[in-house]
Computed example of a mutant assay.
Amino acid sequence: MRIVVVYGSHKAQGWRDALGAQLREAQIDIWQPGFTEPADFAVGWSPPPRFFIDQPKLRAFFSTGAGVEHVLNNPNLPAELPIIRVEDAGMGEQMVDYCRFEVLRWMQRRDEYAAQQAAGVWKPLDESHREQWPVGIFGLGVLGREVAKAFAADGYPVNAFTRSNTTRDPNVRLFSAVNGADQFAAFMQATRVLMIFAPLTPATQDKFDRHTLRLLPRGAYVINVARGGLIVDEGLLELLDDGHLNGAALDVFRQEPLPAQHRYWTHPKVRMTPHTAAVTPMGPAAKQMAEKLRRYAANQPVTGLVERARGY
C-alpha cells in the first residue's frame, strides 16, 4: 500500500509519522509540487488543485477532518473518487467542553459580574436554572449527537433538527424536515441556545439569516462551531444590535483569518475563537484512519464515506 500525505502546513510530517506508526507495512510519502509517483491513497487537508493532476491513480482520498468542502471544492477532483472523512476521534469531547463553557458563562451571567467587578459594584443577580435553558442542536451528526447527549445528561432540555427522523434518543426532542415545513420554525422557537453543527452544503449555505434567526425567542444565543457560511453575518449583527439576541460564540467564519475590520472583533456581544473548538487529535485520528485504510484496501466497508450529492 502506498500513501501520499498532502497537507498545506508543517503538520504533513506529523501525519506521515503518526500514520507510519500505525501502518508499518505501507510506504508513506509527503506530497510536494512535482511529486508524481503514483499512490494508492491520499490522506490530508485542502489539497492544492495541482495535487489531483499529479495523482491520477488514487483509489480514495481520506480527509483528516470532519469537514470535506476543502476537497469537494477542488476544481480537479475526479468525479468518481471516493472521499472518506475522519469521525470524531476525540473532537466530540472538545465540542462538548466548548459549548458547555459558553452556555455556563451566559447562564451564570459571568460577563455581567465581570462588568460589576470593574465598576466596584456588589450586586447579586437573579439566578438561572438549566431547565430554563433549552439548547437546540442543528445538525445531528457524530459531533452534534455527542453534544446533545452531554447536555441532556447535564439536565438541559435538548432539541434537535434533522433532515430525517431516523435518530432515536428519548432525551432529545426531535424536529424533522420530513415531518412538515413548520418543523424548523418550531425548533427555533423552542430553543434558547442555538448550536450549529451542520456541514456547509448548498442546502445549509446562508441558512441562518436575519429572518430565520429572528425565529429564536428574544434574548436567545447562538454558537457556531460548524462553518461560517451557515450564518449571514449582517443578519446576526442586526439582531445582536437591536437586542433580539443576547450573544454569540463564534469559532468559524466566512473568511479565515477574519478580516481586521470586521465588526465581530469589537462587538460587545460576540466572543470569538480562531477555529479551535475541536482540533483533530493526530494520534487517535491516525489510528482511526489506519483502520479505514486497511479495510478499504481489502475491499471491506468503511464508515465516513462522503455522499457527494449531500456534500458530507
Rank of each mutant, 00 (worst) to 15 (best):
E291N: 11
P281N: 13
A226L: 03
A26L: 11
A42V: 05
A185Q: 15
L230R: 08
F35K: 13
I53P: 00
Q55I: 09
G283N: 09
T273N: 06
R310Q: 10
H129A: 13
D251K: 10
T191Y: 01
P49Y: 07
Q132T: 14
D169P: 02
M91S: 15
F187V: 10
T166W: 09
H129Q: 10
S128C: 13
D209W: 01
A226R: 03
R263F: 01
G90D: 08
D169V: 03
M188I: 11
K57Y: 09
R308I: 07
I84R: 12
T204W: 06
Q116I: 00
D233N: 13
S46I: 00
R109P: 03
M188Y: 11
T36C: 06
Y312N: 06
G136A: 09
R85D: 01
A309Q: 07
M1K: 09
N73T: 08
R145T: 12
A277W: 10
W122D: 03
V43T: 13
L58C: 07
P170A: 14
V225C: 15
V96Q: 02
V279D: 10
R85P: 00
A115H: 01
K269V: 04
F51D: 08
D17G: 00
I30Y: 07
N179W: 11
H267R: 06
K149T: 15
A185S: 15
L293T: 13
L125I: 03
M1W: 03
F151R: 06
A160C: 08
H275V: 10
E131I: 05
P274M: 13
R227E: 06
A278R: 07
V232P: 05
P82D: 03
A181F: 05
V142G: 04
S176H: 06
T303H: 08
E127P: 00
G14M: 13
W31M: 03
V306P: 09
E256A: 14
V43E: 07
T64I: 15
A309Y: 00
V96G: 07
A181Y: 06
A220G: 13
D97P: 00
E112L: 04
